[in-house]
């Protein structure tokens, strides 16, 4: 399995669309057979980013926030995307390999409500900005 994690300052980069560095990891069984950092140019468009991941034959991408068009493009390309993930890169990688990445410590803020229903990379459905958002000031939080 080839894994890409967008990284910045030792943590998962906040926004995939403009991420500058990707950590590429190849896992065979219990062993990590490849671990390297690859740079994206900040000037590269989002299409080039997706194309670069496809060139690297990535199976799984772990990243922070990602805009919907890019998410769709990644998903259409057959890459499994774990988006809106935050945290220390090593801890995130370990969580991915042990199957605990979906746990709360790795959620980005704002992904706490309805995470499995919509938004935060879980399939946004038809909701549009300004409607049906996870948090509304003035409402009591659950």
């Amino acid at each position: 399995m080839r894994i890409a994690l967008t990284v910045w300052n030792g943590r998962i980069a906040p926004v995939f669309d403009v991420a500058g560095t990707v950590r590429l990891v190849e896992q065979h069984g219990d062993n990590i057979t490849e671990d390297q950092l690859v740079s994206f140019s900040h000037n590269n468009g989002m299409i080039s980013r997706v194309a670069a991941l496809l060139e690297q034959r990535i199976d799984v991408l772990v990243c922070g926030a990602v805009s919907r068009p890019v998410h769709r493009m990644l998903a259409d390309s057959g890459i499994k995307v774990h988006s809106f993930v935050s945290g220390d890169t090593e801890e995130v990688l370990e969580a991915l390999l042990t199957g605990s990445l979906e746990e709360k410590p790795f959620w980005m803020p704002g992904c706490g409500m309805g995470r499995n229903r919509q938004g935060c990379g879980r399939g946004a459905g038809n909701s549009r900005r300004g409607r049906n958002r996870g948090f509304r000031p003035g409402k009591k939080e659950v």
């Binding site: 910045w8 943590r11 980069a13 906040p14 926004v15 669309d17 403009v18 991420a19 500058g20 900040h42 922070g64 926030a65 935050s86 980005m108 803020p109 704002g110």
Partner: peptide
């Protein structure tokens, strides 16, 4: 972390 809350195109660069 502010970058993980604000998630802006400016955060990294």
């Amino acid at each position: 972390e502010c970058s993980e809350v604000f998630r802006s195109s400016m955060c990294e660069a």
